[in-house]
Design a binder for these strands. Structure first.
Ligand code: ZN
Ligand code: ZN
Ligand code: ZN
Ligand code: ZN
Lengths: 132, 132
DNA sequence: TGTTATTTGTTATATTATTACAAACTGTTA
DNA sequence: TAACAGTTTGTAATAATATAACAAATAACA
């Protein structure tokens, strides 16, 4: 059998919720919201999240321990991700900038290490919060 | 009184331990190791860590929930950090590359957001692990 | 069908981090 | 000095995040 093509029921339930959300969701907030759909234990949510991250349908915002749906159709896997995070309202946006991704994907330093993945988080104030 | 110049006792104890370590340390591992020095509760460690991160003496590796001492003398505050992380042996190195930091510090996208901070984590295999 | 691998359900537990509040210490000023 | 304000510390309790272990159900397929 080749790599999974379809999402399992639990994965789909979790993905639907994350995609509907306008803000990053935390695992236990997801759990609370899918309990009526039958996912009763943390592990069921974490398993779904793990798989969805692996296949690039969602990303984890590491500094917030929260998850967002990928809005970037060219982002099939979670191996080159960049986000902007407002430190006031906590709005998170996935950055889709080909120059940036090219620059980082090709980045090499003198450590002899070959990078195959990166995650970048920018922090600041969004337009709205800046003007308050 | 102006901004704190000297570290408190607890901060110094925690910093000493993190600086001595060749690998990122987790908060509860730090706690275990400083208990003989009198820091008995998680909060004492977390408070020290928070302050040390704030003043740039240490950095948090977000994807690992672990802390490393800053090896970069020009890095007074934790507002522009980049790390390479080996996914096999978990070795972490702070990247000190002025081109990269200049590029990211000056990065602007079309969101109207002004960034004042970023954190970048590269993943891959270090030289040693690559040749296994 | 029987066999294997994957996914799921369930309980328990481990790990990471914060709240709340009282006590001790530090520097300032009446 | 004594009162005070601000900061740091100690302590207990608890919240929030994440994983281990194992049995049951389901899916792929020879
Ligand atoms: Zn994406
Ligand atoms: Zn904002
Ligand atoms: Zn540094
Ligand atoms: Zn390695």
């Amino acid at each position: 059998m080749q790599k999974q093509q379809y999402l399992t029921k639990n994965q789909q339930i979790v993905l639907d919720l994350v995609e509907k959300s306008s803000e990053p969701l935390k695992a236990y907030s997801i759990l609370f919201n899918v309990q009526k759909k039958g996912l009763k234990a943390p592990l069921q949510v974490y398993r779904a999240l793990d798989k969805l991250v692996e296949i690039g349908k969602i990303h984890k915002i590491e500094s917030r321990n929260a998850f967002v749906a990928c809005k970037n159709s060219s982002c099939q896997v979670s191996k080159a991700t960049a986000f902007s995070i407002c430190e006031s309202c906590e709005k998170v946006t996935e950055i889709n900038n080909s120059k940036l991704s090219k620059y980082l994907t090709n980045f090499e330093d003198n450590s002899g290490m070959k990078y195959n993945k990166y995650n970048l988080e920018f922090f600041g104030l969004c337009k709205k919060c800046k003007n308050k």
